[in-house]
Design a protein around this nucleic acid. Sequence first.
RNA 1: GCCGAUGUGGCGAAAUGGCAGACGCAACGGACUUAAAAUCCGUUGGGCUUAAACGGCCCGUGCCGGUUCGAGUCCGGCCAUCGGCACCA
Length: 857
Amino acid sequence: MSERRKPYPFDRIEPKWQSIWEKNRAFHALNPGEKNFDAAKPKFYVLDMFPYPSGAGLHVGHPEGYTATDIIARYKRLRGFNVLHPMGWDAFGLPAEQYAIKTGQHPEITTRTNVAKFKSQLQQIGFSYDWEREINTTDPRYFKWTQWIFLKIYNSWFNPETNKAEPIETYRGDDPDSVRLAYVAEVPVNWCQGLGTVLANEEVIDGKSEVGGFPVVRRPMRQWMLRITAYAERLVDELEDLDWPESIKLLQRNWVGRSEGTEIEFKIENRKEAIRVFTTRHDTIYGASYMVLAPEHPLVDQLTAPERKSDVADYRAQIASKSDLERTDLAKDKSGVFIEAYAINPANNQRMPIWIADYVLMGYGTGAVMGVPGHDERDLEFARKFDLPILPVVQAPEKTVEESIGFVGDGLAINSPIINGLQTPEAKAKMLAWLEQHEHGQSDVRYKLRDWLFSRQRYWGEPFPIVWEKSEPDGRLKHRSLGENELPLVPPPLEDFKPTGTGEAPLAKAKDWIRYSDKAQRETNTMPQWAGSSWYYLRFCDPENDRRFVGEEAERYWMGGPKPGGVDLYVGGTEHAVLHLLYARFWHKVLFDSGYLSKTEPFQRLVNQGIILGEDNQKMSKSRGNIVSPDEVIDNYGADSFRCYEMFMGPLEQMKPWSMKGVEGVSRFLARVWRLIMEENRAGEWILSDGISDVAADKSQTKVIHATIKKVTGDIETLSFNTAISQMMIFVNAFTNADAKPLPAMRTLLLLLNPFAPHLTSELWETLNRKFTDAGGDITEQPWPNHDEQFLVEDEIEIVVQVNGKLRDKLTVSLVASDAEIEAAALALPKILALIAGKTVRKVVVVSKKLVNIVLA
RNA sequence: GCCGAUGUGGCGAAAUGGCAGACGCAACGGACUUAAAAUCCGUUGGGCUUAAACGGCCCGUGCCGGUUCGAGUCCGGCCAUCGGCACCA
């Protein structure tokens, strides 16, 4: 590619200013208690979702959110805030480990290389991060505290009476291990033979591993779990006062899946056991004609008649062999086995045949449902397939009884002696009262949320600070935590990172490391990648602290404020709408309950940037070959053009395609700003333009200046950066052909543009200061300009004149004209007279200082 | 299937219920130039009217209806695209 002449010397000024900022520690935030800390300034904590440093480097999607937060950070500094704007690396994770398996290169080396690449790319864009606060989740000084927090969780239980976590010592029951917030359980997990590890649900796509595409099967394994379900209610309720997009709140609410209903007990014919059922439609109990248990339900073995045992065993085997994928495919086709036992419907004492079927899940509710085929789609399918009785008990509005079969909405209770004639809500209330009164059931709340599967069979993750010890009476292995003084627990050096293939973690190969004492061995599983990212925003407040995960004063300052959430602005992709944001909130609440934090929520305001598509309008991917790297953009147009284009493309939260032509347009705009202030001399050198003079702007220029201050300031506050840039383009267009460029106007423009194009504006500011010294100091030390409304008012205003709502003419009147005067003037316009001639004016609407609408009969 | 978001020129997009298309891209025309690039200026939703220009008229924000003096914007119903969940009782 031939050397193109640069429209302005960004290749010289951008590295220059980046090194000045670094040398001056321009963006270093001071903590309370540090020398020069200014307690009079308000704080602002603006955070990006820190990246996983992959080998591929940045693509243009990463810096979209980063640019937005950088503009906010720079703007807030100019507005006199102490700004915390940090960056770090979420560096544990599968790709580095897979690379290690392939090449033998230790993940630590891969990680270091990738971090260096990412960091240099971010620095080239000129982001104002406080690099002195850089953190890396794989650094033992960091994960020491990840392990420490795990111990806090492990050593806590959730007290339902206080609705918060408390130290395990306060638990009065026999078996503390049964209530810890971190516990071991045998659960069905996603096992991926190809990768040799269990995977989280989100790492499994259509029954295959996201990495490598290997098949994934369900398999019961003993795993570490975190009791996030204890917080289900608070995770929903405490969303309320957060400034998050409603759609994201809804996603979280749906994920937690609260439903209110009733737990009902059904007696079993001729037996002492009972089946408990959870239902949200206890008003349909008269229509419950059969009972279904999940195949794994603990009562199945006891209740199944001897002659049905082999059928049940066959059915269970058949289900176990199905993969998740097959299960989804077969979702519509109901299957099940009758176990030759009967339950008694407490409402009408009818016998209900008991079945097992895989459409009932052991993991939700009680693992048992009452079959109401009249008013539940799945029950109806099941009943039709196995010829079970179908009784309508809710009549749909405007429908006959017969037509109401399959109706699942609210209607009129029928065939239900106790509640006949009642609308569903009243029917529910009365039925519940009846059930409670006769001790058949009580109201209950259930959640879809499951506990968090927290262990992985991987090398490249935080080891659990847990040892397994032979306990004295029975010689069984029991877990216990390491002491805080034993942290960090660093993973052993390994030559061979390969999975064992047996479900045992790679750490099991480090025989010396595992051996803790004569009678104790270390836990060999590691934590998932989500661990480090569940609290990193806290560490940024005080990253060097080696006595505490975050210092109290630093936490109170940066995570404080009047709102429930601590981080003032958090920007990142929607892909983390549920998991990361839910996990972080959960950890935060445990730490809050334990008295370590000042706020109940981590993130007050959340904004999701939209993804950037390739020029072909498709998602960027290696296989499509449409990935745009920031490097090429910066080489050709400079970092400021890159930043401004990222913001000019469209609304931050919207999905939008990349366009190199668009970058060029924005680059032209910045070059125009440059040439507003600079000109080339005969030698081809850029020098301060003769046109710049210290004169006042004229009236129309003043108006543009103040309109721009107002618009840009308001737009930055609402993150509408695209329209802020448009307004600055209007400003520049207005001054491009002016004979004299008034100095104060130029300074105002540079300040407004500074958060967007910091290198260009710093350079021009400095150049102006060399000749005109009164502004003094660096651009970053200036106050943000204020607009004055008086310069925006017009002497004369244009009034739109409509006839029957259609624009017909315009009218210019004085600012002080009354509505009556405006109406009279409008009705006197020749065009309007012609239009209304011979017609009756039925009404005239006058909107003050705006419009007249003449309505004809 | 359920839930949510989005739908405006050739393209990215603007528009407190009040002039639809700001700003930018692309395209076309002009100035400068031996020429090109760069730069600057202008035109640019569709159609009709007009020899042409000025002007004038009609249509136009996914589709159908409603509220309103007035709807891209509010309400109801559809359609399409994208995203999430998916036997959750």
